[in-house]
Amino acid sequence: MRIGEFKNDQARERFRAAYEQTLAELWPGPRTALDLPTTFGTTRVYRTGPPSGEPIVLLPGSGGNALMWHRYIDTLARHRPVIAVDTVGEPGASVQTTPIRDGQDGAAWLDEVLAVLEVTDAQLVGCSYGGWLAINHQIHHPRRAASLTLVDPAGFADFGPRFYAWLIAGGLATAAPRPLRPRLARLVGNSAILESELMGLMRASMGFRRALPIPPVLSDEELRRLRVPSLFLLGARSAMHDSRKVAERLGRLAPSASVEIVPDAGHALPTDKPELVAERILHAIEQ
Rank of each mutant, 00 (worst) to 15 (best):
T39C: 01
P270A: 07
L194F: 02
R144E: 12
E90R: 00
V259L: 11
P60Y: 02
G61L: 08
R71H: 11
T32S: 14
V82H: 05
M68V: 10
D152Q: 06
H283M: 11
G160P: 00
R244G: 11
Q287N: 09
V246T: 13
I135G: 04
P216F: 08
R80M: 00
R225I: 00
P216M: 06
A175P: 01
V246D: 07
R178S: 08
S205M: 02
E286N: 14
A134I: 07
Y129C: 00
V277E: 09
F40R: 04
S128Y: 05
R78W: 03
P30R: 12
P81R: 06
T174R: 15
A236F: 03
A175N: 05
A175I: 02
G130C: 05
F163H: 14
M240Y: 11
E195N: 13
A108S: 14
R2F: 12
T38G: 12
A107S: 12
A257W: 11
D102C: 03
T48C: 15
I73V: 15
I214W: 01
I3Y: 07
A18H: 13
L34I: 09
T120A: 13
P182W: 08
R224H: 06
L184F: 02
G29I: 05
R209E: 15
N190G: 03
A236G: 04
A157L: 00
D242G: 04
Y164M: 14
P99Y: 05
C127H: 15
F40S: 00
L114S: 01
D264G: 11
P30A: 13
G103S: 10
P81D: 09
P182S: 11
P263I: 07
R181G: 02
I261P: 13
V151T: 05
R80L: 01
S196N: 09
I135H: 03
L250M: 10
L59Y: 06
P177C: 07
A24E: 13
L148T: 06
L124A: 05
L250W: 09
F40Q: 02
D102W: 03
G106D: 02
S196T: 14
R14Y: 00
D242N: 15
D264F: 07
R44Q: 14
A257V: 12
E248R: 15
K245T: 14
P60N: 10
Q138E: 15
F232R: 09
A185I: 01
T42I: 02
N65Q: 06
A236H: 09
G251N: 14
V113I: 14
V188R: 03
L36G: 10
T97G: 06
A11L: 07
P274D: 11
H283A: 15
Q96W: 00
L133S: 04
L223C: 09
T271N: 08
I139R: 05
R210H: 09
L201Y: 02
H283L: 13
R186K: 14
P255E: 06
G266E: 08
E118V: 00
V116Q: 12
R183L: 15
P28Y: 11
A66R: 01
G200F: 00
I139Q: 05
S205D: 03
L187K: 12
V82E: 08
G155C: 04
A175D: 09
E221L: 04
P81E: 09
G170W: 04
Q138H: 14
V113E: 07
L167K: 10
W166S: 05
Y19K: 03
V188Q: 06
